[in-house]
Design a protein around this nucleic acid. Structure first.
Lengths: 231, 231
DNA sequence: AATTTTTCTTAAAAAATCCTTAAAAACTCA
DNA sequence: TGAGTTTTTAAGGATTTTTTAAGAAAAATT
């Protein structure tokens, strides 16, 4: 997974640059906009995972920008930065849909943790629905969530977790190369001689399950990986 | 919709009582526990929407309590209250999975907004609480409110509260996976070895009740959960 | 308040499932 | 050809599930 994209909108050039570098150092992909207008343009032209907005800015303040952002995206987390500890500001921020709020000067490590916490929350929310779990493979129907493989006129074949994950990975790359290394690092979480042998055992099992449709094959590409083909 | 249930764990009796009343005045249903131990007991015996935990408490501090809460429920929002503005505390809080953090003394109106913001976020995430209570399962008719299971020509089978809740949860997910963890956290309010065994016992009971229709089965998906299928 | 009934948990053994490892045979490519 | 890679079968150990049964806890009844 690539690093997370963060939109930082901060008019103070010194502070903004330092903060950008600090976050970039921690493997975030930062886009730094100098004011609200520029921030909105950047937002519309990119696909960010998180926004960090200064409240007081010329041309367009943080709240106004947040409102515009919320108009197109109700999900994206927003963190406000503010110099003032004004209660009205805090309330306005939450009304606009802030996820968090930090008073300057703040501890950069705390900001880092907030970012991490918020992104993790998003992660666990969205990782459920985003991935497919139903696949057509030749005459077979495969459901990776229920871990079963079936076809008209045949019985329901139950799959073990590893069998299911491996078949899913092959199905995602259907007719294309599924690199050995990918399955080993993602499913076996280690790429060594033994896990590689184990994976071969699982490929053999899947071939058995799929042998009722001779149009479906798992081909080996020597030294590279496997290919699930549908003729 | 009933008012949201909030667990407030705060050892200072004056502050705790005032805060409880203030929140109760704003239509929240507050349970006030005096320390971490009591808080954990309350948590296990109820179904809260949000937890507000003081950090420094006798017997069991807020972090320890939060860790125990997270062990059974990874979703529930947690807000920490702390007198100290210590960076280590804030970091520890986020590590444990805090959703927000407030330094005492804080503005009660700010707390109110945070609560509202967090609960709204949850709302949009998981508005998936079924209030149905009548289900058709194969030739059976099941009423989870009256806790009975019947079919034409068979006698009326009465179900215990746990039997009924479990069958309802299976019925809501009919033909789909009902994760073990879901039933354990929602019905048993704890996910451990013993509650898991207990659940298995109940699955066995339900299978007996449902065996008069061989088209209806409760299948196990190893390591994942169960599936109520209708063939 | 005491007794009965129902509900739920805990225990423990048996069964099923899952994964790794081993080892021999077949295959591929230089 | 021969070294390295892939395929396949099978044994074992670990984990998870199933089931029965006993006793504790809670609820209902007398």
């Amino acid at each position: 997974m690539g690093s997370k994209k963060i939109l930082l909108v901060e008019d103070d050039p010194n502070f903004g640059t330092v903060l950008k570098d600090y976050l970039a150092l921690h493997d975030y992909n930062i886009t730094h906009a100098k004011d609200g207008i520029e921030g909105l343009i950047e937002f519309k032209n990119n696909d960010f995972d998180l926004c960090i907005l200064d409240v007081m800015m010329p041309r367009k303040d943080g709240f106004s920008l947040a409102a515009d952002i919320r108009a197109t995206n109700k999900e994206i987390p927003i963190i406000f930065l503010t110099a003032k500890t004004m209660k009205e500001d805090v309330l306005k921020g939450y009304q606009v849909g802030a996820d968090d709020y930090l008073n300057k000067p703040f501890d950069s490590e705390v900001l880092l943790f907030k970012i991490k916490a918020i992104l993790q929350r998003k992660e666990s929310d969205s990782s459920k629905e985003s991935d497919e779990f139903e696949f057509a493979i030749g005459k077979f129907f495969f459901n990776s969530k229920l871990r079963h493989l079936s076809y008209d006129g045949g019985e329901n074949q139950k799959l073990s977790p590893k069998e299911s994950k491996l078949l899913k990975m092959l199905a995602v790359h259907k007719n294309d190369l599924m690199p050995r290394e990918l399955a080993l690092t993602k499913i076996w979480r280690d790429d060594n001689y033994f896990t590689s042998r184990s994976m071969d055992v699982y490929i053999a099992k899947l071939r058995k399950y799929l042998k009722d449709d001779e149009k479906v094959e798992i081909l080996n590409i020597h030294g590279e990986g496997f290919r699930l083909v549908e003729n």
